[in-house]
Design a protein around this nucleic acid. Structure first.
Lengths: 344, 344
DNA sequence: TTGAAAGCGGTACCAT
DNA sequence: ATGGTACCGCTTTCAA
């Protein structure tokens, strides 16, 4: 059922009043401008009948509000994944940049479901935003951007796409780091949990890991590579169950996202297994719980906060004409904890 | 350093061109409209020199984009707390309501730091938004709203404030529920972790708990009431340390937020204590990890998803004139797990 | 107590 | 290849 978003003029006409009067009443200033109660009521009734909704953009333009030094930045947000930590980083980055650069940022969040970004992307090319940040695009989603071109800057979070800016983690390296770590620990068999062909970042990590593992003679059985495209505690639990219910398990496990780790630990416990004794675990991410779980979890830390801040900062620089499209790298680093201690 | 957000007219004048030409060039349509390369370059150079930033609202108004059936909804977001789960719920609620009601929602996130909402709140009264949702206001913040009045609907998440709409959890009841549960478990001594006088919801829970505990002869020592206004894993860890480092500890512990629980468990472990054997734990919230930790954590579940959905749905109803300001209640419920099993 | 009209900053049509 | 101008929807000043 289509709403009739009527305009002030329509209300005014059908009441035989002027738009000025209607506007004043609708802004709650009827009394102070001394519009008669009777007229006020008529206006309100008619507005309700027409289901009047003010055009916010017309209002803003007229009042000049939010037009000075203001960038309208859209954050395209994949609701399918668990990007919650990133959101916290984004809100903080916004406050920081507003302060630092003396600007105003209007942060518009555009939710999309994995693979369906094309349904929302028309918004990018319709003069709505100053610039765009994209979080968590799947294979389909990135494909869409490759095939289209936009006239405002679009910056990706940890995805390389020709012609676009991005801030990326060297995920291939993150994969290699884990394999090298396992090698130094004397680990000869290893598995991967959370593989997702639709996720470019995770895929790079896998590749980096697998190539390096091969080079270092770490054996990776097929049944030790478990996919998981949900990235949450429950999915981590069932993924790990799948591996452990099969005949064997590896000495070392590389978990693609720290958001699943509690589920992994649970599954191990229910199978009577302990980390690091039975399986050494290396996670990916910098969630603070990794430092408090039992065992504490070794992780390849990605600087989430820095990542998001770099995205926003880059976008603003581009908008200010200070930089052109580019790629910024943030480096992952190893944090040793109980689940797979430092080799030294 | 104030930016000079110059206008198209200025560029046009200083170049001796028309606004039309400048507009076309700046929109990247210079070639298709056959503006000479030379002129295009002049325009771009001048725009850069003037640091031209288009007024997004003027553009939207003119192009009519995003004006049909669109509500601009601001979510005031306290970045000090850990409301990440809520954000996921909010993005999903937005998609749901757009679908269900056949409307468009532009979700604007306005970050604020605890106690400082007044610095951002002027935005509410300046015609920027259709309506406002407020998440995580502290005592100061709610005080501010009590003292001011706004001409657009403002809806609070789990805070009662005279004259405003809200969707609330019966936190007093949630407190009582825990005390009653402990009583049925035969627990005679209990503590509270995560008390925060600045947080109305947590305070109600404490009150409900303490009153019921008194009634049921559960003793609550002062040193067992530990405050924590940070609500994260680290703060939970240090809060619990504070309690356990003192002379004694209670049989039952009510933890005000599930976001601290991993820290609490860690502290107990380091003190050689186990749940439920040494201390029975009841949490508050519905984070999925509670179901996978060791031990699994008994909790008073609040329907976060429903809570946020109700807020948004209520706001839209008010905007559509279908409802007036009101208060909606969502009920907490007990979920029994290992850390404090069902009494039966 | 109400109305007429200017104008916010752009875009796009139609001329030239 | 470029310019003139109406107009998007609303608020506000000033006049009646």
């Amino acid at each position: 059922m289509k709403k009739d978003n009527s305009k002030i003029k329509q209300i005014a006409d059908s009441l035989g009043l002027s738009v000025a009067t209607v506007s004043v009443v609708l802004n709650g200033r009827g009394d102070s401008v001394r519009i008669s109660k009777k007229t006020q009521k008529k206006v309100w009734d008619e507005a309700k009948k027409f289901n009047y909704t003010p055009n916010i953009y017309a209002r803003r333009l007229r009042t000049g509000v939010g037009s000075d030094n203001t960038y309208v930045i859209a954050a395209f947000w994949n609701v399918t994944y668990y990007l919650n930590e990133m959101f916290a980083a984004l809100t903080r980055a916004v406050m920081e940049q507003e302060e630092e650069k003396g600007i105003n940022i209007e942060l518009v969040v555009v939710p999309y479901t994995s693979g369906m970004i094309s349904e929302e992307a028309y918004k990018i090319s319709s003069n709505r935003y100053s610039g765009v940040l994209v979080f968590g695009p799947s294979g389909n989603d990135t494909e869409f951007f490759k095939e289209n071109e936009f006239n405002i800057p679009v910056i990706f979070c940890n995805r390389r796409i020709d012609g676009y800016s991005s801030v990326i983690i060297d995920d291939f390296l993150a994969g290699e780091m884990c394999a090298m770590h396992f090698h130094e620990r004397g680990i000869k068999t290893a598995g991967l949990l959370g593989v997702d062909p639709d996720n470019a970042a995770a895929t790079h990590r896998c590749q980096g890991f697998l190539e390096k593992a091969k080079e270092l003679d770490i054996s990776v059985k097929k049944s030790w590579i478990v996919s998981d495209n949900s990235r949450n505690t429950s999915s981590g639990y069932s993924s790990m169950n799948r591996m452990l219910d099969s005949s064997s398990y590896p000495e070392g496990l590389y978990v693609m996202y720290d958001t699943v780790i509690v589920g992994v630990l649970r599954s191990m416990k229910e199978h009577g297994l302990k980390s690091p004794d039975d399986i050494e675990i290396v996670s990916y991410g910098d969630n603070v719980v990794l430092h408090y779980l039992t065992p504490t979890i070794t992780t390849i830390r990605v600087p989430t906060t820095q990542l998001v801040l770099s995205m926003l900062s880059l976008l603003i620089s581009v908008l200010e004409g200070k930089k052109t499209a580019t790629i910024i790298k943030e480096d992952p680093s190893m944090v040793y904890r109980e689940s797979s201690p430092s080799p030294q």
